[in-house]
Write a protein that binds this DNA or RNA. Structure first.
Length: 321
DNA sequence: AACTGGGCCAACCGCCAAAGG
DNA sequence: CCCTTTGGCGGTTGGCCCAGT
């Protein structure tokens, strides 16, 4: 037996909201609040709507300070940057854009921004030369393009989540348990930090490194993000250093769009990125080709060294210096 | 004028985790 | 500890609008 529906679907109105319904809901919430129970709310005010529908209507349309209308270039940058960093975590992205709802951002991304971004990449690709050297050039260009100001914003976001006293480099797995205890014991509101060591990325990391990484800490709200507690973290800067290679190879093509969506895979790219090649013999892949990644060659120490070198190589914000 | 296809977006669906009994 | 209810989220859908034919 499946779970009971949240409301009696035969007796609730569906579809677009009327101005009268909007007015009822808005005035009630403004006066009384939601009362902590969305399911009961429509009955209180005589609306034949599902509580979930009321909640959605309020959050996405009626609540104060909602921004409607076109997105600015700055907002575009933030969305692109965060999407590449954390994927389709629309609520988190929305939290960085005051007045925008997750639904708005999701719609905007799916209908316009994705095409806009991929269109840009396509243009870049067409105007570029061939050869592996060119890939690096393209990678650098996109990286530079994203770096300012959007990447700085990402770093700010990242830093806002992460306690400054803890380094973001990989730590020796042998010490992880102690590190975790240390972090948990000393960081106020530890559970609010966005990391997830039970994600696929963590599993992949474990497979690709010689020693397993502890997966005890978990924050459900941030599942599948690329942050790890106790120092086994991957900074956004590092991830960007690995993404643009694939970004430049995207085009208007359903398969490629899917691949683009898969770009947020993170750690596998972190470890395998430099080993990825096109399946075709030419150095410039075409759209029939699949990307083939060589088996991971790096062990734990290699991973760590690579991260440390990369972090020091790049001009990173103060906390990494 | 009628039809059609695509873009856009509000709303719905279903899943998951937290909360509470 | 289990079960139910609720909130929250991301994915998907359906319908409106408009440009093109």
């Amino acid at each position: 037996m499946g779970r009971a529906p949240c409301c009696d679907k035969a007796n609730v109105k569906r579809g677009p909201w009327s101005p009268e319904e909007d007015a009822k809901l808005k005035s009630y919430i403004e006066e009384h609040g939601t009362g902590g129970n969305w399911i009961a709310l429509p009955h209180k005010i005589g609306l034949k709507r599902c509580g979930k529908s009321c909640r959605l209507r309020w959050l996405n349309y009626l609540r104060p300070n909602i921004k409607h209308g076109s997105f600015s270039e700055e907002e575009d940058h933030i969305i692109c940057t965060l999407y590449l960093s954390i994927g389709s975590r629309w609520s988190i992205i929305a939290a960085q854009l005051p007045g925008r709802t997750d639904n708005d951002i999701k719609n905007y991304w799916n209908t316009r921004l994705k095409k806009k971004l991929l269109g840009k990449q396509r243009k870049d690709q067409q105007s570029s030369k061939k050869g592996g050297q060119v890939k690096q050039e393209m990678k650098r260009e996109v990286f530079e393009d994203l770096k300012a100001p959007s990447l700085c914003m990402s770093m700010n976001l990242y830093q806002s989540y992460w306690p400054s006293e803890f380094p973001l480099f990989l730590t020796n797995p042998d010490q992880l348990h102690q590190d975790q205890l240390h972090v948990k014991n000393h960081v106020p509101n530890f559970n609010q930090y966005p990391f997830d060591t039970t994600s696929n990325q963590a599993e992949m990391f474990n497979q690709n490194c010689e020693k397993p990484i502890s997966t005890s800490a978990y924050h459900p709200q941030m599942a599948n993000t690329h942050y790890y507690p106790n120092g086994d973290g991957v900074n956004l800067f590092q991830e960007f250093n690995n993404y643009p290679y694939e970004i430049n190879e995207l085009d208007y093509n359903a398969t490629q769009l899917d691949q683009f969506d898969g770009l947020v895979g993170g750690l596998d790219n972190l470890i395998n990125g430099s080993n990825c090649t096109s399946s075709s013999a030419e150095s410039t892949p075409s759209w029939g080709d699949s990307l083939v990644c060589a088996p991971p060659q790096m062990g734990y120490e290699d991973c760590r060294r690579e991260l440390l070198q990369s972090c020091h190589r790049e001009q990173q914000p103060n906390r990494f210096q």
